[in-house]
Design a protein around this nucleic acid. Structure first.
Lengths: 203, 203
DNA sequence: ATCACGAATAACCGATTCGGTCAATACAAA
DNA sequence: TTTGTATTGACCGAATCGGTTATTCGTGAT
């Protein structure tokens, strides 16, 4: 492991991304060290020099990815007091930003959660909790309800925004045009806000 | 091949589903005949008895799946004259219904489109076109625009509904509670219609 | 120029799995 | 019991698996 950490950051990232990509595409069993080495442009022997065993490499990736991910969560504390729509908008932008900056890590973590038989690592369980907490910050509050023309719409609109968020994140998938989709999402939220809020709350 | 078609329908389906599942999970190269045979509960030798080669089995699945899928498209002609929201609602319900009835086939076709190196089979290309045509039937028409409080909202609302559709379909993923999500989707569309349509068009 | 030393790899290991074959078995009809 | 067929366990050579080792390569000091 020290052997690997002594490499240049670029090379570390290159190797990590190759491994993350292979494992998330094929799963632990079907991903082979040969594939990873080839994709990283290094020899198989080097991989074993760095990590010892396949399982060791995988565990390193789990730990590194969840650490990285938690750091993102940390620096992304939501403004708890912001308006409902602003909170949702900020959350989706964060999600997209993260997806853009760490595509391999996001895909890998999702794949780890799908791994059969192997009990989900503690790190990943922690991550799930962290995600739950984030989601809770988005929830509707009483303070928001008064702004709605029809407050009884609010819960369903919240669900709607969740669907939109999932949909947008899902549609991205390798598309490089992040800015366009972020812009569209902002316009969608503005439009919905206009139709659902009372006039006096449209800033 | 005739050997396979002579089997009972239930056994055919059992074997097909096992193969569809393996291929869509692991891709052509990494899916093994052993896995498929084990999942289907038959011997590997039988699979070769039925299909001759791995590639033959795969090609049969592509053909069968696209045929099945086209049949679904055929019987699902959209009412061209219906109201905008009704068309969208009907389309999403169809999508969900199809996903519920043919989960293995849908997943397999998506995986075929992702297969690297192998040129996309003609059948699948046809399917894509069919899907495009379906989508075109959803498009906004001039007749719809007059119903909107703000006709300029319509294109963006259309995009919004697409996102919601993708989001909902994506969230389903094995969840058995189709009816609940269909119901929620209907409520969402009703709510949006209420806020975006002029009063006199709210039937 | 050469030596020394760590990093990288080509070549190799036994074991397993691959796609595919075939002879033996299980089974149903006659 | 015999015959024909559906199914499979056992097997094939080739490839690939995770992992090791002996050699080569690159570099910095002498």
């Amino acid at each position: 492991m020290e052997k690997f950490l002594a490499l240049s950051d670029e090379k570390q990232t290159l190797i990590r991304n190759a491994a993350l990509s292979c494992f998330s595409q094929h799963g632990y069993e079907k991903a082979s060290i040969n594939d990873i080495a080839k994709m990283a442009g290094i020899s198989k022997a080097s991989l074993f020099q760095y990590f010892g065993t396949k399982q060791n490499l995988y565990e390193y990736l789990v730990e590194h990815s969840s650490t990285q991910m938690k750091a993102v969560y940390q620096e992304q504390a939501l403004y708890a007091n912001a308006d409902f729509f602003d909170r949702v908008q900020q959350a989706i932008i964060m999600k997209i930003d993260n997806l853009k900056k760490n595509p391999y890590i996001v895909a890998f973590i999702i794949s780890v959660a799908k791994e059969p038989s192997i009990e989900i690592s503690e790190h990943i369980k922690d991550l799930m909790q962290e995600g739950e907490k984030h989601l809770h910050d988005l929830m509707l509050r009483d303070a928001d309800l008064v702004k709605f023309k029809h407050p009884e719409d609010a819960p369903l609109l919240f669900r709607t925004l969740m669907h939109i968020g999932y949909g947008i994140v899902d549609e991205i998938e390798g598309v490089s045009d992040f800015d366009r989709i972020v812009c569209e999402m902002e316009n969608i939220l503005k439009m919905l806000k206009y139709h659902f809020y009372k006039e006096e709350y449209l800033l």
